[in-house]
Simulated assay, not measured.
Amino acid sequence: MLISKLYLKNFRSFDDEGTTITLNNLSGFVGENSSGKTALIHSLVKLFGVSSHERSLEKSDFHIPKQSKVESIKELNLSIEARIDFPELLEESQDTLSRTNIPPFLINS
């Protein structure tokens, strides 16, 4: 299993235009302060966190543009999407271990 793409829109430092981040087998996040590195990690926690507290949204999770007044905003849409690939399903010679690690409803028989 591999998370290959993340799409973030109106989440923390990611604005309403939306941003797609492509990930590889080994990805690192490098950037200036306030560029979104921590927000990216927090978006993964919002999707895959163990506890319901980790997965719940808070007011501070929403991106508010600098020129906007919070009192004037009535509604905001926030999106966090992850693309999950299963490269082990595409391999010609699937070993028993990789097949047993994938839920049965995801395997095309």
Rank of each mutant, 00 (worst) to 15 (best):
M1S: 14
L2M: 15
L2A: 11
I3G: 04
S4D: 12
S4Y: 08
L6T: 06
Y7P: 15
L8P: 00
L8A: 13
L8C: 12
K9S: 13
N10T: 07
F11Q: 11
S13I: 07
S13N: 15
S13M: 11
S13E: 11
F14S: 01
D15L: 08
D15S: 15
D16C: 10
D16Q: 14
E17M: 10
G18E: 15
G18P: 14
G18S: 12
T19I: 12
T19A: 12
T22H: 14
T22R: 14
L23M: 14
N25G: 15
N25A: 12
N25S: 15
L26W: 10
L26E: 11
L26V: 15
S27C: 11
S27K: 09
S27I: 07
G28R: 05
G28P: 00
G31N: 14
S35T: 13
G36W: 08
T38D: 05
T38M: 04
T38W: 08
A39S: 15
A39Q: 02
L40C: 14
L40V: 04
I41E: 03
I41W: 02
I41F: 08
H42F: 04
H42D: 13
S43Q: 03
L44V: 01
L44K: 01
L44D: 02
V45G: 00
V45K: 01
K46A: 04
L47N: 06
L47H: 01
L47T: 01
F48N: 03
V50L: 05
V50T: 04
S52C: 01
H53C: 00
H53T: 05
H53Q: 06
H53D: 07
E54C: 01
E54W: 00
R55T: 05
S56R: 05
S56W: 00
S56G: 03
L57M: 12
L57P: 07
L57C: 06
L57D: 04
L57S: 08
K59P: 13
K59Q: 10
K59H: 09
S60H: 07
S60I: 11
D61L: 06
F62S: 02
F62G: 09
H63W: 14
I64Y: 02
P65Q: 09
P65T: 00
P65D: 05
K66G: 11
K69H: 13
V70I: 14
S72Q: 13
S72N: 12
I73P: 12
I73T: 06
K74L: 11
K74S: 10
K74N: 12
K74G: 13
L76S: 13
N77D: 10
S79M: 10
I80V: 02
I80K: 01
A82E: 02
A82W: 00
P87Q: 06
E88A: 04
E88S: 11
E88H: 02
E88F: 06
L89E: 04
L90H: 08
E91M: 07
E92T: 03
E92Y: 06
S93C: 03
Q94V: 04
Q94T: 05
Q94E: 10
D95K: 05
D95R: 02
T96S: 08
L97P: 01
L97I: 08
S98C: 09
S98R: 05
S98P: 00
S98K: 08
R99P: 00
R99K: 14
R99T: 08
I102G: 03
I102V: 14
I102C: 11
I102T: 12
P103T: 03
P104W: 03
P104L: 12
P104K: 07
L106Q: 09
L106H: 09
N108V: 13
N108P: 14
